[in-house]
Simulated assay, not measured.
Amino acid sequence: MSELIEEMPQGQLVYRRLLDEIRTGQMAPGARLREVELAERLGHSRTPVREAIRLLEMDGLVVHQPRQGATIRLLDYAEVMELYEMRAVLEGTAARLASRAANEAELRQLAELNTEFAAAPDERAAAELNRQFHAMLLEAARNRFLARSMRGLQKTMLLLGPTTLMETDRVARAAEEHRQLIDALLDRDGASAEASMRAHMEAAQMVRLRKLRRIERPLED
């Protein structure tokens, strides 16, 4: 038991590393998780790697396939649609609640984050600032049950791979969508805030679907 306790911090470290690789697309859906290869590549023993895979399985990010073992879960088209639909519901609700509960400092912070987001030097920086923007909005909603539901959804969203912000002009368009949301929050207009967020989610969904169609389009001679 003491040996297991000693390995737990390393297991969490490997878990976070694998989550980041899934988020950035370094480990794509369908990829096999071989304990020996991961242990060698990440510089850990097989015990923390095994623990990390178990945690990913608990998150629903890893499944066991016949004759393949542990693999990164592959979402089908319907699941992608359902994910974005649920995200629109949850984040739209967060926007509506934040219009009522957010304080002035939080609204200023949202505006500042969006300014930095619009001027981000690259997609990775933009993605991090976008994450902070949505996290701040969720915090401003002041609803712990909503936050818990959103955290669970965000784990599954990792299976979508690299951010849609990598698409041409998406950062500029997303920044404008953020600004419309901020204007509704400043006006304390809950209905407009929710509608703005839902429109923002639908725009991201359309970019994702176009990307999926490009991937699935058969190669032509």
Rank of each mutant, 00 (worst) to 15 (best):
M136E: 11
E202Y: 06
A102W: 11
I215H: 09
E112S: 08
L209I: 15
S45E: 00
Q180A: 15
R170E: 02
V36G: 03
Q65K: 13
E112C: 01
F133K: 05
M166N: 12
T156N: 04
L56K: 03
R131G: 06
V207K: 15
A95T: 03
A94V: 12
R41N: 05
A78G: 07
S45N: 02
A172F: 10
P218L: 15
D20P: 05
A78E: 15
E194R: 15
L75A: 07
M58G: 07
E51H: 09
V63M: 01
A147C: 10
D183L: 15
E167H: 12
S45C: 03
N143Y: 06
E37C: 00
F145L: 11
L160I: 08
R142Y: 04
S45K: 04
M58C: 03
L56F: 04
E79S: 10
A52K: 05
R173A: 09
S45L: 01
I72K: 14
Q68G: 06
Q205K: 04
R23N: 14
T71K: 10
L212Q: 05
L212F: 04
R96V: 08
V80M: 08
T164A: 14
R100L: 12
H178T: 02
S2F: 07
N130D: 14
R188T: 06
A204T: 13
